[in-house]
């Protein structure tokens, strides 16, 4: 039991370190970064800031058609993203994305959100 959980955790950590190390070093939205803050009120209740989505990095590694139009409409603010939907396997939490060992897990709030209170 312990061992298998430890293994899974390790795998997830390794994947997330590889994935986010390059992309999320800075939270300043640079070129190619999109700020997602349509649910700013809810986010401030939960003590997290707006999401900075590194569109450029995702475009480097993935084809447009892997996200558009099935997962995200390619129009700013046209997607009703929330943590509920992420957890249910939509948007960022789609089964091959941040709900799988291929990318860092959804509980690493500070990889996506800015100003996360209490994050290490």
């Amino acid at each position: 039991m312990r061992q298998s959980y430890a293994l899974i955790t390790c795998a997830i950590m390794a994947a997330s370190v590889m994935f986010c190390g390059a992309a999320f070093a800075a939270h300043e939205p640079g070129p190619g970064k999109l700020v997602l803050d349509s649910k700013a009120a809810s986010m401030s209740k939960a003590g997290v800031g707006p999401v900075v989505f590194p569109h450029d990095l995702h475009k480097q590694n993935l084809k447009c058609s892997e996200c558009h139009p099935n997962i995200f409409k390619d129009q700013s603010k046209a997607n009703d993203i929330s943590m509920k939907k992420n957890m249910e396997g939509q948007f960022c939490g789609s089964p091959n994305c941040h709900n799988s060992p291929k990318a860092f897990p959804l509980y690493q709030c500070a990889n996506c959100h800015t100003n996360v209170k209490g994050a290490k």
Binding site: K39, A41, S42, M43, K45, A46, G47, S82, M83, K84, K85, M87
Partner: peptide, 8 residues
Amino acid sequence: EAKGDYVD
């Protein structure tokens, strides 16, 4: 109750 308007 989870903080946030949409979090289950």
